[in-house]
Design a protein around this nucleic acid. Structure first.
Lengths: 184, 184
DNA sequence: GTCTATAGCAGGATAGAC
DNA sequence: GTCTATCCTGCTATAGAC
């Protein structure tokens, strides 16, 4: 992997672990075995770095969407939920939840980028739910978008709550309840 | 009000607005019209201050619980949901969501205190749901605790998401969906 | 492209006068 | 209890050698 993508990958992990304002170029330099100034060569400002992290998440999301584009709605929903399973295993939260907490202390260019990511997630999930409803796999009241809001908030906050309840089962409980609710 | 409680109140607001690591003694001093050093007189360290903020939230929660202790489950649930309506109007997030994002960059004494708050919220909500189920007002599958996890995560993350979707209705949509789901 | 060195600033915190 | 003054540390960021 290139130095550039290594920097982005480590930044991603650190932001989601400690929070945007707590992670520093010094953390990155230490982890990557390079110097502070080298990071600035690739990313002049911390804002540039945060935007690259969000772009990385956007790319990963688009790859996931593409990989299940021909699958049935249930498989697609499970693909969406699997994102959080992976993040949960790291003990981290998702980038949306992490940056949303710091929203009014970060550069507007970051929050605008984040908005793009959120919109894409909501559109994708709402689409999955709608197709699932049409084909009779999913059952729910309200619009697909409002249902997507419920599903996304469940998953987003589960990562944050489970860090505090210390009950390893809570995450699985929430995930299964979300699935069960839609399929029965 | 005393200087001490003013400091705690402003800290509370700032942490939930900007995030724990972004808010500073300088912010407080400016807002309150006092000096940095005066705040240290009441709260020697930032950790002390964060703990006082969580204690404040615990007190407010206990007052709310007491105020509806003789009410029916639906009224109690609405009381719980009203916490977030108020926070939503400020454009802030809740203290649990805010600090959970920074969890691995804050003093352990803060996270331990936060855990107490989370446990109390979950116990209260699960109790409300259970009594509502027994009296036939609420209908849901799974244990009261797992249902409480769904409700709490919906509300917690709704504050964070709505900051990004810019759709003012999203918060109300989520809140009403939570209520409707339980009562039908 | 990576380094050393350092500027410049803001953060949390303390000493001591009033 | 509140102030002025100050310390120390860590941060983002830059200049310039290699």
């Amino acid at each position: 992997m290139s130095t550039r993508s290594d920097i982005v990958a480590v930044s991603d992990t650190l932001i989601r672990e400690k929070g945007y304002n707590a992670f520093s170029y010094a953390d990155l330099a230490k982890t990557l075995g390079i110097r502070n100034a080298s990071i600035h060569y690739y990313f002049p400002t911390k804002t540039d770095l945060a935007i690259a992290v969000i772009d990385r998440q956007l790319e990963k999301l688009n790859e996931l969407i593409s990989s299940v584009t021909d699958s049935d709605p249930l498989t697609q929903l499970e693909a969406y939920l699997s994102i959080y399973t992976h993040t949960r295993e790291e003990g981290s939260v998702c980038i949306v939840g992490s940056l949303a907490s710091d929203l009014y202390s970060i550069d507007e260019r970051i929050s605008n980028h984040l908005r793009t990511l959120v919109d894409e997630i909501l559109l994708w999930v709402a689409g999955i739910l709608e197709r699932g409803q049409d084909s009779g796999v999913f059952h729910f009241t309200g619009s697909p978008r409002s249902r997507a809001l419920l599903v996304v908030t469940n998953m987003l906050a589960s990562l944050q709550l489970v860090r505090l309840t210390d009950n390893k089962n809570d995450f699985e409980t929430i995930k299964e309840a979300v699935l069960k609710e839609l399929t029965t």
